[in-house]
Design a protein around this nucleic acid. Structure first.
Lengths: 234, 234
DNA sequence: GCCGAAAGAATGTGATCACAAATACCGTGC
DNA sequence: GCACGGTATTTGTGATCACATTCTTTCGGC
């Protein structure tokens, strides 16, 4: 049983607030893996399995799992075993409805957050464009895994600039539920069939047009979720 | 230090699906307490404190706290201590925006869920009316605690009939964040100053008018959140 | 050959201990 | 009187053990 090499560094990366406690490290890595679609729906997880996989003891794995269950990213079987959440037609409808209700809002907030400062807006557009270029590259390469990761990177790079932690938390919970399916769908349909509204969103950002931005986000969601709905659900 | 008297009984109380494991019991009681506003914002919680208070060991308390932190109901200080989430003007705006985006949706889904069956609709109206009557009683009595509890009971009795677990989870997360403040505000303003749109919502339900129902929910949220915004934030 | 029961492994959950960090408390010094 | 410093307590976190339940595998019977 690996002893986990307790990372002690005071962590000078972000602000300064939090040291990377083990169970948060596990949670974050697992969270990213789920949003990026690296874990297929229905995939069974176990406390001890995760613990050995991450080289930690059972406790941090338990806490990470508990958090992800609370966020509806993981599901409990009637016997309390844990798996990556399954999808259902009803859930697709709900998630689509919720995403369309929330993501345009947070996108508009992001625009407003950088609206005062033209320099900040330029920075945001530059960052998003870079991600979108990589995204296009992943599409022509047919790299489904990179596509899933970059697509979420694009959206959350936009959403995070809104500095709206409550809304962001809700949206993250939704992405944690669609992530595994997006990945499965992309794997089946291939990347070439994918269309997104990222170019339109970028244009709206440059123009400072909130209405157009919200519309682009809305369409992007509708198209993405339509693919999920169209795919056969295991 | 109470030794927790390990409850061993196989527990055949509820339906049949899930045995009420200790940590879920703790979570549920804590969750209800927060939504009902029984814990004031900023109130410090500790693993061992909760454990002794509920007569259990530290482990179930830890898991319950972890879940509520994931739902943004509890907050972590920079030193990883736990408290009931604080409010801020920005958070009020976010929560208001999210509630208005989501709760009318789930209310309309509830109406649609009972729409086919006039008998079911009647049952729902009857149940909600009963709660609302108690609510009115609590208002004239000036019973702030009962008011908070019954107000959340009213909304969630409506929302739960929508059978939309994803949306419900999002809304619950939001209520977990407003609960403590609603209670504080009611305690300051008194119950007599309160206005809600429950009567209008019931009328819309009876008439099967989704548009009117959504409008009533929207107004109810706006009025409630306006009170919170108006109150001084400690 | 297939179904079912029994044995073995794996898993979730609760309890408890150890340790470091943070907080609270208290007394001393100025 | 008040600020400072040191001690004692509280607290979060990780680790490990015990136990009941569940899943898996295997073997025997028909």
């Amino acid at each position: 049983m690996a002893k986990a090499e307790a990372v002690k560094k005071p962590q000078g990366k972000a602000g300064a607030a939090r040291a990377p406690v083990v169970h948060e490290e596990v949670f974050e890595r697992l969270r990213r893996a789920i949003i990026a679609g690296q874990l297929e729906p229905g995939r069974a997880l176990s406390v001890r399995g995760l613990a050995t996989q991450f080289g930690v003891s059972a406790m941090p794995a338990r806490e990470a799992i508990r958090r992800l269950v609370a966020l509806n990213a993981l599901e409990l079987t009637p016997t309390r075993r844990v798996m990556v959440a399954q999808m259902s037609p009803g859930k697709i409808d709900e998630i689509t409805e919720a995403r369309i209700a929330l993501e345009p809002l947070i996108a508009a907030r992001a625009l407003k957050a950088v609206g005062d400062d033209p320099c900040a807006r330029e920075d945001l557009v530059t960052k998003l464009s870079a991600i979108d270029d990589e995204l296009d590259e992943a599409i022509v390469q047919g790299d489904a895994e990179s596509y899933s990761r970059l697509n979420s990177d694009f959206h959350f790079a936009l959403y995070e600039t809104a500095r709206a932690p409550v809304l962001l938390g809700l949206v993250e919970s939704l992405w944690l539920q669609v992530g595994p399916f997006m990945r499965v769908v992309v794997g089946r349909l291939g990347t070439t069939a994918l269309v997104d509204q990222h170019k339109e969103a970028l244009e709206a950002l440059r123009a400072g047009d909130a209405r157009k931005l919200k519309s682009a986000v809305r369409l992007d969601i509708l198209e993405g979720m339509k693919n999920i709905r169209g795919a056969r659900l295991s």
